[in-house]
Deep mutational scan, measured.
Amino acid sequence: AEEIWQQSVIGDYLARFKNDRVKALKAMEMTWNNMEKKEKLMWIKKAAED
């Protein structure tokens, strides 16, 4: 689920960090860890469908 979420937001994060992939990935990891369980559930369901 986290991978699907990352694939959907990586472009936004890379743009925000001027294509600094290391910073973008760290920010994504922090965002994922801070997400509410119900927000993650949507992505977990999406992962299950694929």
Rank of each mutant, 00 (worst) to 15 (best):
K46L: 13
I10A: 05
K37E: 15
E2Q: 11
K38Y: 07
W43I: 02
M30K: 10
A24L: 03
M42Q: 15
K23I: 06
V9E: 02
K45Y: 12
K40W: 03
K37C: 14
N33A: 12
A27N: 04
K26I: 10
E39P: 02
V22A: 13
G11E: 10
Y13V: 02
A47W: 12
K45S: 09
T31H: 14
K46M: 14
I4E: 03
E39T: 04
K37N: 12
M42S: 08
A48W: 12
I4Y: 14
E29M: 12
L41G: 05
K18W: 10
K40C: 03
T31I: 09
S8E: 06
L14F: 04
K23C: 10
R16G: 05
E3G: 06
N19E: 07
E36W: 03
I10V: 05
A47C: 07
N33T: 10
E2R: 05
W5L: 01
E39F: 03
W32P: 00
Y13W: 04
L25N: 08
M28L: 07
M42F: 15
L25H: 05
A47P: 06
E29F: 05
A48Q: 14
D20L: 02
I4C: 07
G11V: 10
Q7T: 08
E36D: 15
F17S: 04
I44G: 06
N34V: 07
V9H: 05
D12W: 06
E2W: 10
W32Y: 01
I10N: 03
K26N: 08
E39W: 03
R21P: 05
R16W: 03
D50F: 15
M42P: 13
K46V: 07
W5F: 05
N19P: 03
N34L: 10
A24C: 04
L25Y: 13
L14G: 00
Q6F: 08
G11I: 14
I4N: 09
E36N: 09
K18M: 14
L41F: 08
K46E: 06
G11A: 15
A27Y: 03
A24Y: 01
T31P: 01
E49L: 11
D12L: 08
D12G: 07
A27F: 11
V9S: 03
M42A: 07
M28I: 03
V9L: 04
F17I: 01
G11S: 11
V9M: 06
K18N: 15
A48L: 12
L14W: 02
A1R: 02
K38L: 10
M35C: 01
D12C: 11
M30C: 09
W5G: 00
M35L: 05
I4L: 15
Q7E: 10
K37R: 14
K23H: 06
K37D: 14
M28P: 00
K37A: 15
D50C: 13
D50K: 13
M42C: 13
M42E: 07
V22Q: 09
F17L: 03
W43P: 02
K26G: 12
I44E: 15
R21L: 13
I10F: 09
M35F: 04
A27C: 09
L25W: 06
Q6T: 10
E29S: 14
R21D: 05
E2S: 06
L25Q: 14
W32A: 00
V9Y: 04
W5Y: 04
G11Q: 14
Q6D: 02
F17D: 02
A1I: 04
I44N: 06
Y13Q: 01
W32Q: 00
A24W: 02
E2F: 15
M30E: 10
E36L: 05
Q7Y: 06
E39R: 03
E29L: 09
K23N: 05
N19S: 11
I44M: 08
K37F: 15
K40T: 02
K37G: 10
K46Q: 05
K38V: 12
A15M: 13
L25K: 07
L41E: 15
L41M: 07
L25F: 14
G11K: 13
M30F: 13
A48M: 15
S8N: 06
V22L: 13
W32V: 00
M30Q: 12
L25C: 11
D12F: 08
M30V: 13
R21E: 09
E49Q: 05
A48C: 05
N34I: 06
